[in-house]
Amino acid sequence: MSDEDHPRREPAVAEAQEVLLSVVDRRLTGDLTDPAVLAAVVAVERLTVALRTTDTATLTRALSEGAGAVPDASRPGHDLAELLQEGYGQVLEGLNRRADGRDSDAALVNPDGGAFEIVTDASLLRAAVRAAQGSIDAMPYYRERYGARGSRFASTDSAWLVSLAPLPADVAVQQVGWLSRVLAGRGMPSWLMEVHLRALVDEVAAAAGPQAVGSLPEAERSLTQVRRTHVDDELLLAAEEWADETAGYAVPVPRAGLLLAAAVADVRSGLVRDDHALAGWVTDPAHSSVGAATALAEVRERVLAQAR
């Protein structure tokens, strides 16, 4: 029987809250076979990043009483009320799946991303979510351009990447390369994947030991090696300095110069055909003043002149 044949059930919000509170102490380990519990683990971990705390009492207060119970506690850029609403909605969907005997997949916590495999080990899933949300917080471009939708995609992409760790290195490298190409075509240069993979390796090692990182370091090294062949670290940093010197605070997002250089690297390596998805956005009048757009276009030309 297909999913469409199932009448949709709407479990009580109280039941969803019970599931969320059952994992709020973040002690649950092992394989998450219950979709509702998996959704709750993701929701709680995203909440810990937004609130900058793993304190059980604070998390419980937010889940039980709402965003108003923890005023001014969340990081800038995090809409706590929206995050709580998403979390409850995902757990409700998990309860529907539990009742219908359906398994977990990425669509459970990110319906827009499609149904693909993600890691279901509780410790590794938390590590994936922390790395994803940490990467977003470290790079304001993500949130400025992709918003809450980008945050959901980051978590499921990260949970998929962790599932590659046990694979042979050549397979993991190929799979990471495929995702990097897709994301670069949407305005996320592969340098961002390098940064994320380093954060992911650190989180996975901290959560499950160094042996758990598997082939992920090799995948990161492969991306870095290819990028440095065309735009080395010195040119990345130089591009950022040029942007600061010529555009200053008028840049649409921090590290715009570095992102432009990283996008050029992807074109030179053949990962994508052109860098319009990134360069077009940072120089668009909707995001940049005329002066800043002109300055950034000049930065891009300087990078093109020095890239290999």
Rank of each mutant, 00 (worst) to 15 (best):
E4Y: 06
V13M: 06
Q17H: 03
L21A: 12
V23K: 05
D25A: 11
D25V: 06
L28Q: 15
L28S: 02
T29R: 15
G30D: 03
G30N: 03
D31Y: 07
P35E: 11
V37C: 08
L38H: 04
A40H: 00
V41W: 08
V44M: 11
L47T: 05
A50E: 05
L51Q: 03
L51Y: 07
T54A: 14
T54D: 14
T56Q: 15
V70A: 05
G77F: 03
Y88V: 11
L92T: 13
E93P: 00
R97G: 02
R98S: 11
A99Y: 06
R102N: 01
S104W: 12
L108D: 12
L108N: 08
L108S: 11
I118K: 01
T120Y: 00
A122G: 02
S123T: 14
R143I: 03
Y146V: 04
S151I: 01
S151G: 11
F153T: 03
W160A: 09
V162Q: 06
A165E: 09
P168H: 03
P168L: 02
A172Y: 02
A172T: 14
Q175Y: 10
W178C: 00
L179E: 03
R181M: 06
V182R: 09
G185W: 07
R186W: 13
G187K: 05
S190M: 10
L192Y: 03
M193P: 05
L197T: 09
V201N: 06
D202G: 09
V204W: 07
L216C: 11
L216Q: 04
E220C: 12
R221L: 05
V226M: 10
V226G: 03
T229N: 08
H230F: 13
D233H: 12
D233C: 01
D233R: 12
E234M: 05
L237W: 12
E240V: 05
W242E: 12
E245L: 11
P252Y: 01
V253L: 14
L260A: 09
A263M: 06
A263Y: 10
V264C: 10
D274N: 15
D275I: 13
A277I: 09
L278N: 02
P285K: 01
H287G: 00
S288R: 03
S289D: 15
A297G: 15
V299F: 02
V299A: 08
E301F: 00
L304D: 01
